[in-house]
Amino acid sequence: MSRDTDNEFPPELRALEAELASLVPRDDGLDPARLMFLAGRASVGKPRATVLVWPAAFGGMTVVATALAVLLLLRTAQEVIERVVRVPVAVSVDAAPSHEQPAPVTAEHEPVIERAVAKSSSAVSASERVLASLPWGQGKQGDRGERWKTSYPDLRDRILERGLDSWPVPVSDGGPARPPLSQRELLDQMIQEIRQPTAS
């Protein structure tokens, strides 16, 4: 803006102008952003209770998660039942080990161990884990499923435990039965087959 020297202020204002021109702006002046923020907050007034809901929820969930973690840690040691899935193993059992510890299993193909269901109990020995992985791992008390259909000992034990009716007579869904042929009927049939040789 150019100064219009022709438009001079009255003498009393010229002194004021000179004083104002001598003023230097301060560096630590107002922060406009903060000023607006404070103004906005002041316009809201005291915080309502609903504002605390989310922080409270966050705090509560944190407490829940912590409690669950503590419960998990306080549970007794888990039993891990290892179940061998892959089979082919070449194991050396020739030489007796020179010490009491069992010799390590050496194999061409390491068996794939699958971690199965864990249940809360005290720690079990390695032999118990192997035994549990066997089909008869639970002994006579275990669930032996349908093995009684192909295994005599399981059939026997089933009958001893549950009675003879637990051995159901096989239910046939075939058609009506044909009575067996008498000796005469069988002879007639065979003679007929002989008289009518099949084409080669």
Binding site: V84, V91, P102, V130, L134
Partner: peptide, 9 residues
């Protein structure tokens, strides 16, 4: 393999 492991153990 299971029986062999039992035998060794």
């Amino acid at each position: 393999p299971a029986l062999t492991a039992l035998a060794i153990k």
